[in-house]
Amino acid sequence: MTTIDTGERRRGAESRPVITELIDGATIESIAQDAWIALVGEEEVLVPLPGEPVTDPVSSWVDVVGPWTGSVVLTTGRRTAEELTRALLQEHSPEVLEDEDVADAFGEIANVVGGNVKAALPGSSGLSLPDVGEAPAPRNPDDVCRVDLLWRGETVSISVQGALPALPAH
């Protein structure tokens, strides 16, 4: 159960936080790096450089619902997602990867990154189970914090994006 104190709700009455007020790219990058080292491998470095645009993209994401509501979305190329899956499965990696394996592994990375993003946000929030496929579109361009990273030379982007449209100007 979530109880929000009156003071917090009153502040909420005046404005709604956008993600850039709550977290920065460096924090997201560091969360992602920790997840990569633990899940993908100790030597697996994420380089904070934009790479080639992703062809055949696939996304995995979790939703966060609380004082800030939105999604933590990882996007990369399908082949890179498969490579990540093999790295996670290590010796259990099958010769032919099923879509289900990729959804499981790539979804679990989003879950770990998303869970830690959630923990870095103020207040108490809920976290959804991971989803994999075509990413939800950002609703409000001001409510997005995105980092572009390179893993083994391939682009992996992480977008922490709000689910609420911009407020009307008044």
Binding site: M1, T2, D63, V65, T69, G70, S71, G126, L127, S128, L129, P136, A137, R139, A163, L164
Partner: peptide, 13 residues
């Protein structure tokens, strides 16, 4: 309701 709250983002989307 609270039990549906992680599906909210789908409704918003």
């Amino acid at each position: 309701s609270e039990s549906e709250h992680t599906q909210i983002v789908r409704a918003l989307a």
